[in-house]
Amino acid sequence: MKIIVCLKQVPNTTEIKIDPVTNTLKRDGVASIINPDDKTGLEVALQLKDKFGAHVTVISMGPKQAEKALGEALAMGADRAILLTDRAFAGADTLATSKTIAAAINTLEYDLIIAGRQAIDGDTAQVGPEIAEHLGLPQITYVNNVEYSAEENTFTVQRQFEDGYQLLQVQTPCLFTLLATAEKPRYMRVKGLVDLDKKEVEILTRADIVIEDAVLGLKGSPTKVKQSFNKQYNSNKQKFVLDPAEAAKLIATTLKEKHLI
């Protein structure tokens, strides 16, 4: 089985804080990580490799420094890593990104494509389904569990909803997007780290994929950012320093005044 895992390097947004004085994002020193849902997707691929034997290729689109995330994926056990990087790809929205990645995947062989449900920086959850559409593949998103029957070459997956789940069956080729809760990703292996010298992240540029210029990057993106802004919070609100009994009284009185009790 040949598996392609799409992953994205993201800033660890849980570490981002707002500077209380300037009211802007403090992004300095915030670590870059493999997006959590994607890392779980890689773990699922590696488990399929452990159980059934598979060749796992990780692919990412981003700046040159995204090589680091792909290196980590190799050290976890991926067999091949590809970084799509070119100034022509910059500024792409989800549609342009998905077309670019789909064009790169078109140069590869695969049975299964796995992506994370969404990235923690953009939170859109759109690139996975859009890749599936460009490649004409059936998609299953919000996947919480993956079972595979080698005899029937069939995947049975649990598709999560807010109020329940579906068990769905599909044959390859297909695309899943994984929830971070599905599996706990393994650590990088010592052997994997040692072998890193031998495995290199392959770089694909504009010239390596077959796609029209008109659909790439910023100019190939139907959506444009008109403006971006930080949330303004009022950090000068009144606070009461109270002992627990006083605190309880104040809350009870407030609720009563508002006719909530």
């Binding site: 800033p11 947004t13 849980t14 981002i16 707002i18 994002l25 923690i120 920086d121 939170d123 950012v225 008109k226 403006q227 971006s228 802004f229 930080n230 949330k231």
Partner: peptide, 8 residues
């Protein structure tokens, strides 16, 4: 960015 930034 997890609600840190807004974009129109």
């Amino acid at each position: 960015f997890g609600g840190n930034l807004f974009a129109t």
